[in-house]
């Protein structure tokens, strides 16, 4: 065949650092706001959940912790799942109330952006405020990592098979 030909390129960046394995499903489905423990800041170590606590499958490590005392911002991904923790208080902005109404069931930042016709960047600012006010909970996505996770890939394959 004729026509232009491509030349392959080489990786330019170091691979991301390894992360703990994909946690298995929680033993029991949780009712209500399941991250209440993860968001509690009593012991000041909200980000733990790896081997340190002796529960490698701890689903709490999936939650993004925002609004920490140091003012750290939530790292919101397009597919971070947002769930309302309570109804909108009277003080909520119309946009904030709209998010809380939509997040009665988990919804990704991308979906919120689409339904509310807000750019992704504006959406993350709004959601970060809601996380800080403890009105919503954020469930971080599972990302590609250096230590590949076969059980995760297998779960996705089985899910696709049923499509």
């Amino acid at each position: 065949m004729t026509g232009p030909r491509r030349r392959r390129r080489q990786p330019q960046h170091q691979p991301p650092p390894p992360e703990p394995p994909f946690p298995p499903p929680p033993a029991e489905p949780t009712e209500g706001p399941p991250a209440a423990g993860a968001l509690a800041s009593g012991d000041g170590t909200p980000g733990e959940g790896g081997p340190a606590d002796g529960r490698p499958g701890n689903p709490e490590r999936l939650y993004t912790i925002a609004g920490a005392a140091d003012g750290a911002r939530a790292e919101l991904d397009l597919v971070t799942l947002i769930v309302a923790r309570s109804a909108a208080p009277p003080s909520a902005s119309p946009e904030g109330a709209a998010v809380l109404r939509l997040c009665g069931a988990p919804l990704s930042v991308a979906e919120l952006s689409a339904y509310l016709s807000l750019p992704f960047s504006a959406m993350t600012v709004l959601i970060t405020e809601l996380i800080t006010a403890e009105l919503v909970q954020a469930r971080a996505p599972i990302v590609r990592r250096a230590l590949p996770d076969r059980s995760l890939l297998e779960a996705v394959m089985h899910g696709l098979q049923r499509l």
Binding site: P26, P94, A105, L107, Y115
Partner: peptide
């Protein structure tokens, strides 16, 4: 956009709601 008319706000259809057990997402 007007966020006040809550009856007219767009959102997922009821059958499109994710279960509350949804813990995490992956993307392709």
């Amino acid at each position: 956009m007007d966020f006040n008319g809550s009856d007219t706000l767009p959102g997922p259809r009821t059958e499109d709601h994710l279960p509350h057990t949804a813990q995490a997402a992956v993307k392709i």
